[in-house]
């Protein structure tokens, strides 16, 4: 295995929560946000770090970035103890908090980059080279002189990602980098991250709720729940463990009885001419579509990925019957007849 870049050995984080129990009396309760967590990430790996809300994801990232001090255990990033040498590590890492910009709201985008240039003491030639490259890859050219407050969410996120990479960090922590972005921005951000990882061997740790982020970017997924690592491996394996299913939505020319689909695919819902078929996420949709198209008058179709929460929930709590077909909210192939 390649050199371990991030190392956690039985890391714990215990918070003491005080709660008012009476007029003056207070109850103290210990909350174990991270419980004996051990893993390593090799240099240049791109890892998805997922789990339900409150599972300990952000506590882990805060310990990795030196914001929080672990209660116990050993933690090293690039050989540095983040909580002891916070500023030394800061020069070598980049952080993007998806919902919190670090750019200067009232100033043109370029001003934020000039501050990074000086605060991180980036050599002039390197700064210029990195800025040019990032501006080109992220399409920021026309935005540099625009005050940040006038940027769209997608533009700002690209701006934030560029800011986190100007100083050539060896590791990049991304917290929900595609949240709230439109499809084009999302694709652009993903393409860019893939490229950075490939060209610079930047280690990337990504927390996200978007399964497609992980599918397209990460060869490895870690799932955390109640502060413990419950899965560490390939995404395909997660689908197997969680027995997750994708959904094929087909619109037929007219109302028909449920499609006789080849097992294990099966119809789970019928509304007028529209039918929903569930099939294992590990199988290709192409064969299924071809077989249906050969026998039924197909007008339109779409494939829905399993929801990341649903996959994890299934994995954590075992299979409990067929999942509810997802509510009809996204990617309508035809207008609803109502």
């Amino acid at each position: 295995m390649a050199e371990a870049f991030i190392e956690l050995d039985r890391v714990e984080k215990v918070f003491e929560v005080r709660r008012r129990a009476g007029f003056l009396r207070r109850e103290r309760r210990q909350v174990r946000a991270v419980d004996s967590l051990s893993f390593t990430v090799a240099r240049g790996e791109m890892v998805g770090y997922i789990g339900p809300n409150g599972a300990g994801k952000s506590t882990t990232v805060k310990m990795l970035t030196g914001i929080l001090t672990p209660s116990a255990g050993r933690l090293r990033v690039a050989g540095i103890d983040p909580s002891r040498e916070r500023t030394r590590l800061a020069h070598r890492m980049g952080v993007v908090f998806g919902q919190r910009t670090t750019l200067w709201w009232d100033l043109p985008l370029i001003d934020s980059y000039r501050l990074m240039h000086r605060m991180y003491r980036i050599p002039d030639a390197r700064y210029r080279e990195n800025l040019d490259r990032l501006v080109e890859l992220l399409g920021l050219g026309e935005l540099l002189d625009v005050p940040v407050r006038q940027l769209s969410l997608g533009q700002r996120m690209r701006g934030d990602i560029a800011a986190a990479l100007l100083h050539d960090p060896e590791v990049l922590y991304l917290d929900e980098p595609t949240i709230g972005l439109d499809v084009i921005s999302r694709t652009r951000v993903r393409d860019f991250l893939r490229q950075v990882n490939a060209e610079r061997a930047t280690t990337v740790l990504l927390t996200t709720h978007d399964l497609q982020d992980i599918e397209q970017l990460c060869s490895r997924v870690m799932v955390i729940d109640h502060g413990r690592l419950v899965y560490d491996g390939a995404l395909a394996g997660l689908h197997e463990v969680g027995e997750s299913e994708r959904t094929l939505v087909v619109d037929l020319e007219r109302e028909l009885p449920p499609i006789e689909a080849p097992a294990p695919a099966r119809v789970v819902r019928v509304v007028g001419p529209r039918q929903w078929l569930a099939f294992p996420a590990s199988e290709s949709a192409a064969g299924l579509v071809a077989r249906i198209a050969a026998r039924y008058p197909l007008v339109d179709l779409s494939v829905r990925e399993p929801d990341i929460e649903a996959v994890i929930a299934k994995m954590l709590h075992g299979t409990e019957g067929t999942p509810e077909p997802p509510p009809d909210r996204d990617a309508s192939p035809v207008p609803e007849s109502s």
Binding site: G66, I67, M119
Partner: peptide
Amino acid sequence: GSFDTLLVRPAP
């Protein structure tokens, strides 16, 4: 929570 963004910068 924006205090955290100050802690990831290389400055006191």
